[in-house]
Amino acid sequence: MKIKNINKDVPNLDPKFFWEYDFDKMDWDEAYKMVIGRIIERGSQQEADELVRFYGYERVIKALRDEIYFLPNYGIDSAIEFFPELKKEEMYCYLNRLGKPYDWL
């Protein structure tokens, strides 16, 4: 069942993505990197589109390209699928681990 939020200050995302947080008390602006990373990792194109609606295209792309320190390989693949203009070679989360072991996934 899709959750429909009336409040424009809250993104229209299912609380299941944020199981460890009090959804009703989240500071969506302060937590934008966590929210964007979580949805890119676990969400669908529909949720990615909601990120763009709520945060704006530029902020989402900037977070994915320059500010999010870690995404697993499948998260990077999802980011590129949702936003084809992104290149993994430009994403901080990819560049940050070049030359570092990453075999636990």
Rank of each mutant, 00 (worst) to 15 (best):
L71R: 04
D24T: 10
Y21A: 14
L71V: 02
D22C: 07
M91A: 04
F54T: 02
M26T: 07
I61W: 06
N73T: 11
S78H: 15
I40C: 04
E50C: 05
W28D: 06
W28T: 04
S44C: 10
Y69I: 07
G75M: 07
F54Q: 03
D24G: 14
G37P: 07
V35C: 11
C93I: 03
E89N: 07
E81K: 15
R65K: 13
W19Y: 15
F83E: 06
V60W: 05
K87T: 01
K25Q: 15
R53I: 08
D29P: 03
L71Q: 01
I80W: 05
S78N: 15
K100I: 11
Y55Q: 09
G37Q: 09
D24M: 12
W19D: 13
I80P: 01
F23Q: 08
K62P: 00
K62V: 10
P72T: 03
L51D: 02
S44M: 11
Y92R: 15
G75C: 08
E90Y: 08
E90K: 09
F23A: 05
A63C: 03
P101H: 09
A48E: 05
F54V: 01
P84T: 00
M91N: 03
G56P: 06
F70G: 08
Y32G: 00
N73E: 13
F83N: 04
R59W: 02
R38W: 05
I80C: 12
G75Q: 06
K62G: 02
R65N: 02
F82S: 00
E81W: 12
R42L: 15
D77M: 10
I40G: 01
E89Q: 11
S44G: 12
P101G: 01
D77Q: 13
V60L: 08
D29I: 12
R97M: 06
V52F: 06
P84G: 01
E90C: 04
M34T: 13
K25T: 11
Q45D: 10
R42Q: 15
L71T: 00
L51I: 03
R97Q: 06
R38E: 15
F70T: 07
I61C: 08
Q46L: 12
V60Q: 03
E50Q: 09
L95G: 00
Y32D: 11
W19N: 13
E58H: 13
I39M: 12
I76V: 15
Y74H: 13
E47Q: 10
A79M: 08
L95F: 00
S78I: 05
N96V: 00
F83H: 09
